[in-house]
């Protein structure tokens, strides 16, 4: 949108002025300027290092320490065996299911919203997905307790038509997975929508002019262009599902062995006092998976940016 300032600048005669102000001030060594320039990034860099970097390193280091500070592999060995290994498997399964299913459905929903003409619909969907994806956890768990627990509204409806859920169905793996969909789907819609905006109508028109049918457009144009983004977003959902804690905690009070829940138990001293370092070894496991996920995500993102410039 053109502002008055912009207009004025475009007026003849002022153009030179603007470009002149860009020239480097004379008489300073370039490397010094470079250093001074990077100084502007210092607050952000320091903050991130202090509150993201240092804690992560502390966990990684703590994973290899005895409670007294000596070096040991014992924590990692304990973390790699039952019951913690089961927790890892269960967590990975849950993350896999709750990333692939919303990963696919989310694209369809985002596309349906994207192609609809109602701005009100888009506005509702974009704001709702922001809130649901961010609000995660506890509040959503309680919505579902009201819906599908033993006395839940939908449970009663289902009973009326002759389907009876096993008691505590909501608190099993399937139930937790369903609740995860409630924040994973909006998250997918949120992060995939910008990519849909990058699909140019001209591509569709061009393929139609060349005689392509709808499925051919998706097979040879739209699909390949979107694929890296969709895969990348699905990977992010995987990471998000893997690290989610609040929902499962609020729903099951820890009856399903998930790694984040196990970490929470260990740290709260619910298991054996003095096992804090085992908790960090479990955290190390999560961090390793996440690092792999993020590396692949970055690679896919680079590939995606070839066609879809934001």
């Amino acid at each position: 949108m053109a502002t008055t300032a912009e207009r004025r600048l475009r007026a003849p005669g002022l153009g030179n002025l603007a470009s002149r102000s860009k020239a480097p001030p004379p008489g300073r060594r370039p490397w010094l300027r470079g250093l001074r320039g990077l100084l502007g990034l210092a607050p952000f860099a320091v903050y991130t290092a202090l509150f993201l970097g240092v804690p992560t390193v502390a966990v990684v280091v703590g994973a290899f320490q005895t409670p007294h500070g000596g070096f040991t592999f014992k924590n990692v060995t304990i973390a790699a065996h039952a019951p913690y290994s089961n927790g890892f498997v269960e967590s990975l399964e849950l993350a896999l299911v709750t990333s692939i299913v919303p990963g696919i459905l989310g694209v369809f929903i985002a596309y349906a919203v994207h192609t609809s003409r109602g701005t009100l619909l888009r506005r509702i969907v974009s704001t709702a997905s922001g809130v649901f994806a961010n609000f995660g956890g506890v509040q959503l768990a309680f919505l579902f307790i009201a819906t599908l627990s033993t006395t839940g509204v939908v449970t009663v409806w289902l009973q009326d038509v002759g389907i009876s859920l096993t008691t505590r169905w909501l608190f099993t793996f399937k139930g937790v997975a369903l609740v995860y969909m409630y924040f994973q789907l909006p998250l997918m819609v949120l992060i995939v929508t910008p990519a849909l905006n990058g699909l140019r109508p001209a591509w569709r028109e061009a393929s139609q002019n060349l005689g392509a049918k709808g499925w051919q457009y998706w097979r040879y144009v739209g699909g390949p262009v979107l694929a890296p983004t969709v895969l990348g977003c699905t990977l992010l959902l995987f990471g998000f599902g893997l690290s989610a804690y609040a929902t499962a905690r609020a729903l099951t009070a820890g009856t399903i062995p998930l790694t984040p829940i196990q970490i929470g138990d260990v740290m709260n001293g619910n298991v054996i006092a003095g096992e804090q370092n085992v908790g960090m070894a479990l955290g190390l496991g999560l961090v390793i998976v996440i690092v792999v996920v993020l590396v692949f995500y970055t690679l896919l993102q680079r590939r995606a940016s070839r066609w879809l410039s934001r």
Binding site: F51, P55, T56, L236, P260, I263, L294
Partner: peptide
């Protein structure tokens, strides 16, 4: 994007540690 990845539970135990 890093904060999406690093699980909050790992972050908080690191913070309480350090």
């Amino acid at each position: 994007l890093l904060p999406i990845g690093i699980p909050p539970i790992v972050l908080i135990i690191g913070v309480l540690q350090s």
